[in-house]
Nucleic acid binder design. Structure first.
Length: 125
RNA sequence: CAAGUAGAUCGCCUUAUCGCUGUUUCGAUUUAUCGAGACGGAGGAAAGUCCGGACACCAUAGUGCAAUCAUAGUGGCUAACAGCCAUCCAUCGCGAGGUGAGGAAAAGUGCAACAGAAAGUAUGUACAGGUCAUGCUGUAGUGAAACCAGGUAAACUCUAUGUGGUGCAAUGUCAUGUAAACUAGUGUUUGAGCGUACACGCGCGAUGCUAGAGGGUAGGCAGCUAAAGUUUGCUAGUAAUAGUAAACGUAGAUAAAUGAUAAGGAUGCUGACAUGAUUUAUCAUUGUCAGUAUACAGGAUCCGGCUUAUAGAUUUACUUACUUA
């Protein structure tokens, strides 16, 4: 799996997101939390992933953008290492539930933890 | 030099690797995707959404300014404005300059510290005058003002001028699937149509089937960036600004693109060392090393303003009373 994160791998459909939040399960590694749901896509892709930061915790657009970029970057660099032995399709949403700012190193570390617990949970089923 | 005043400009840079986004060229095909290359990709406030427009739709016979809101010396600029420029007046400052909610008090209503008997449907004291009699008249005393006016409109009010509403989630357009209703055709045992790959055959089969129009959900496209444009020169004007010539062609995302990592550099500050000057413990230049800092903040239809946030750097013009040398 490559390191890219193209458009078709992004979670955009409002329907899917609603479905995800109402039916999905979650794993977390504070300050990150991931909601996931097994699903089927028309397009040729295995995962659809979105990223979200609460407007309540981060009032300024600059801060929100910053954290979303870090989350995307962390996901992009680490997904290859953990997703290779997963066969079915998933919808994912990664949330930042902390209230303070952060840097790339800690996001990277936590992202690894998060993806590892996710892949373990999924492969058990 | 120092302390100030008013403006203007900038607001980190480079390289490598891995990514994001738009345009375009070439190649491949599974004809809407993939691959490769080239070029472009946040701000001075993009922010607050406070004014003014453009644009769009809705409403509207016409008028209007009742109500509401806004504005308020004078003159000018502008597409327009509550903005900008010039200027008068008031006021603050030694000054450069700052600030102004600067229309009207003889239309009316209200309000007014201290002093004073009393600031108005009031009339006290002393003296003098006058009367048949009486605060009837004058003076003294308080106060800015004593019955006659004045102040106050960041009190009501009056005057003049202006104001239809909603906003790009506007609006237009394409449209998979699907429910009910509508129109047309066709059909109910002489059977439409469906299934069985096709024909035959067999099976299923009835307000059904087909078509149209309609509606407009998920989503796509247009609107969507060439603009009251930017820079420079010249001309007119005290200026805001206008005219003219040349050059430039400047982000278009949509769960929302500018990022991550590494290395190096720049600038400021602090410290140490060396160097220079002398008043020999201070000043100051240059260099080296170490540490530290680099703010406020992210487009969402587009412009002109205003307001607020902002580490630090550069620069122009001007002022300086007291104090110190």
């Amino acid at each position: 799996m490559s390191l890219s994160y193209p458009k078709k791998e992004k979670l955009k459909s409002q329907k899917l997101i609603e479905q995800l939040f109402s039916e999905g399960k979650s794993v977390s590694a504070y300050p990150l939390r991931m909601v996931y749901l097994k699903s089927e896509f028309d397009e040729d892709t295995q995962f659809k992933t979105g990223v979200s930061v609460s407007k309540r915790n981060f009032k300024k657009a600059v801060d929100r953008n910053r954290i979303k970029r870090l989350l995307r970057e962390g996901y992009r660099l680490n997904k290859g290492a953990y997703f290779n032995n997963i066969s079915s399709c998933y919808t994912l949403m990664i949330l930042y539930i902390g209230k303070d700012g952060t840097d790339f190193d800690s996001v990277n570390k936590k992202m690894k933890q998060l993806l590892e617990t996710f892949s373990k949970k999924v492969s058990q089923q």
